[in-house]
Simulated assay, not measured.
Amino acid sequence: MKAMKNIGPDTSNILIRTLATVNRFLSAVNTSYNPEFVVGNFARDIQTAVLNLSAEQTRKDGKIKGGKIVEQVMKDIPTSMRAVYASLRGKKLEGKAAQWQQHYEEFMAEGAKTGWFDMKDIDAQAKELERMTEMANGSVKGKLYKSFDAVTGAIENANMAIENAVR
């Protein structure tokens, strides 16, 4: 228990911190920041949803035995995707999309979001503050950071909208 309590960025050696940084970078560029991943991930998520829902509809002990929801789920995906994307961007929708937006916000409030444990040591936190200051001051460097964040944020939000719309 004592060893577990002492786990953190300040107690990790430089090799572990460096490898963790490389690992987070590789993960992000291959998933969250990769537009191509969005398409493939969407196809996989749809296939998994259809397979799982079909199985639950046809199994004797299925949770929705005899139900016919696969078709309705497929029809609702574009609307739910729009609702998730709007929520991620802080926009409010109306009509049927607003209902899906409410479902998504409840989903998130119940702890649906998963992510990584951010292990920044003091130096990394200082660099992040410096980066944020550059962005707030509107310097050339700050504008480049903002542009990068805008592009990667749009791709990441599209990926999250697609992934969570199917869920």
Rank of each mutant, 00 (worst) to 15 (best):
M81P: 01
G66T: 03
P78S: 04
V70W: 10
K63A: 10
T79C: 00
K96I: 00
L93W: 12
R82P: 00
A97T: 02
Q99I: 00
K65R: 14
S54C: 04
D76S: 14
R89D: 07
G90M: 07
E71G: 06
V73S: 09
R59S: 13
R59N: 12
G62A: 01
A98F: 13
V73A: 15
Q72T: 15
K63Q: 08
E71L: 11
G67R: 10
E94C: 03
E56Y: 02
Q99E: 15
M74N: 12
L93G: 03
K91Y: 06
L88N: 12
S54I: 00
L53G: 03
E94G: 08
I69M: 08
K60R: 14
V84S: 04
K96Q: 14
A83Q: 01
T58I: 10
A97E: 11
P78V: 03
K91A: 10
G95F: 02
G62E: 04
T58S: 15
Q72M: 12
Q57Y: 04
R89N: 15
K92S: 09
K91T: 01
S54M: 05
G95N: 05
R82F: 02
S54H: 09
K96D: 12
E94H: 06
A86I: 01
V84C: 07
D76C: 10
E56A: 15
I77Y: 13
V70Q: 12
I64S: 04
A55R: 15
D61K: 13
G66K: 06
I77P: 11
S87R: 11
R82E: 08
L88H: 04
D76P: 05
K63V: 01
L93N: 05
K65F: 06
I64P: 02
G67P: 04
Y85R: 07
A83E: 02
D76G: 08
A97M: 04
Q99G: 11
K96L: 03
